[in-house]
């Protein structure tokens, strides 16, 4: 019942903001496709196949990441620090787990929505994109993980500026480095291994994993689930104490 209440609210919000959400989430992927696909991509080759075909899964990964993260992060942060509507949920007879899960799932839906938009765009740009159940699984897990990160960051930060800081120092670097626009193999050894541990790297690898061995294909979702679980537990823990 509590879960339904939170999802209902997100649905009302989505319906009201449909066009601004839809158009807003298409801008940066279109720019990436133009800049890296048409502009740079003409003659370049990376990771086998045409460059544009290489970067599409990367763009799916990074866009679903930012969409989920900021949908939920901003919603919590505005609700806590600006509109104070967070209080309404804290006062309600609502288990904080239910609140967290409702918000995170709603954020993941927002990520998935923008994911499907890119896939549609990619088809318009006539790229080759291979969608299979494992691809969808990775996309869903990526959305859930970054939605949970958005939730926890939204609960922990002390000001709007902190949210921007987190985006600048954590989210944006990940968007470019985690195997999204170029393969990890091109990086120096130490850095490569550090970056391999980041959740978005697992998504990038997973989204392109056709042909990888079963061990790797098990690791990718497992690592994401681990991140998701840890971050969510942390978020709920602080939510129970948030003022």
């Amino acid at each position: 019942m509590g879960l339904a209440a939170i999802m209902w609210q997100e649905y009302v919000y989505f319906k009201r903001k449909f066009w601004s959400i839809t158009l807003g989430s298409m801008i940066s992927p279109v720019l990436y496709l133009i800049a890296f696909g048409w502009g740079l991509g003409g003659g370049m080759h990376g990771g086998g196949g045409d460059y544009i075909n290489f970067i599409i899964p990367g763009i799916v990964g990074l866009t679903t990441m930012t969409a989920s993260f900021s949908a939920i992060g901003n919603s919590i942060n505005i609700s806590r620090l600006y509109e104070k509507t967070f209080e309404e949920f804290m006062v309600a007879p609502l288990n904080m787990w239910v609140y967290a899960i409702g918000k995170v799932v709603a954020g993941a839906f927002r990520g998935l929505y923008s994911g499907w938009l890119i896939i549609l765009l990619a088809l318009v740009f006539r790229t080759k994109i291979d969608i299979h159940p494992y691809f969808v699984l990775m996309m869903v897990l990526n959305c859930l993980t970054f939605s949970a990160i958005g939730f926890t960051v939204g609960i922990l930060i002390k000001s709007h500026a902190d949210m921007a800081k987190f985006s600048n120092f954590i989210i944006t670097p990940m968007a470019f480095l985690c195997g999204t626009f170029f393969p990890l193999a091109k990086m120096p050894f130490l850095l490569k291994n550090l970056i391999w541990l980041l959740p978005l790297t697992q998504t990038s690898l997973g989204l392109r994993s056709r042909g990888e061995n079963i061990w790797n294909r098990t690791m990718h979702p497992l690592i994401l689930v681990l991140y998701f679980g840890l971050v969510l537990v942390l978020g709920v823990h602080y939510c129970k104490k948030a003022e």
Binding site: G2, A4, W8, Y13, R16, E83, T85, E87, E88, P93
Partner: peptide
């Protein structure tokens, strides 16, 4: 004020009713 500003009066009440089962 801690109303949901992007929701209508009716929706604010509806949300509350749902949150309180």
């Amino acid at each position: 004020n801690n109303l949901e500003s992007e929701m209508t009066a009716w929706e604010n009440l509806e949300l509350h009713g749902r949150l309180y089962h």
